[in-house]
Simulated assay, not measured.
Amino acid sequence: MNSVVVFGSLNMDLTIESERMPLQGETIPGKGFFTNPGGKGANQAVAAAKSGVPTYLIGAVGQDLFGDQLVSGLVGHGVRCDELARTKDVETGVAVVLRSQGDNRIVLSPSANHALKIADVDSALDYVARRGDVFLAQLECDFETTVAALASAKARGMRTIVNVAPPRDLPDEAWANIDVVCVNETECDAVCGIFPDDEDSLKRALAALAAKGPSTAIVTLGGRGSVALSDGRLIRQEALRVRAVDTTAAGDTFIGVVAASMVSGLPLEEGMRWASCAAGITASRVGAQQAIPTALEVDEYLKEAGHE
Rank of each mutant, 00 (worst) to 15 (best):
G223H: 07
R241A: 07
D120E: 04
N184G: 11
I118R: 03
N113C: 09
C188E: 08
T35A: 12
A305R: 14
E300R: 11
G59M: 04
K203W: 00
D122M: 05
V94A: 13
I58Q: 10
T27K: 09
N2L: 09
F254N: 03
T87W: 04
A288S: 15
L296E: 15
C81A: 12
E173G: 09
G8D: 13
L125Q: 06
V97G: 12
R236H: 12
A260F: 12
G132R: 04
N36I: 02
P110H: 05
V97A: 13
A60F: 07
G41F: 05
A250M: 05
V121W: 00
F66G: 08
I16W: 06
D179H: 10
Q101R: 14
L136S: 10
E269R: 03
I235R: 01
G232P: 13
E19H: 04
A60K: 01
G222H: 04
A207E: 15
N177P: 04
M272F: 05
W175R: 14
W274D: 07
E238W: 01
I58T: 03
R20M: 03
A239P: 01
E238F: 02
C192P: 03
L296F: 09
S215Y: 03
L150H: 13
G102T: 01
T15F: 06
P214N: 09
F143T: 02
V97M: 13
A210V: 02
V227L: 04
L170G: 13
L57Y: 03
K31M: 07
I281S: 14
T186W: 02
K31I: 00
V181L: 05
G213M: 08
N43Y: 09
N2S: 14
A95N: 11
A291E: 13
G78M: 12
Q101E: 14
I194E: 07
P214L: 02
R285K: 15
G93N: 09
R105N: 14
I161F: 10
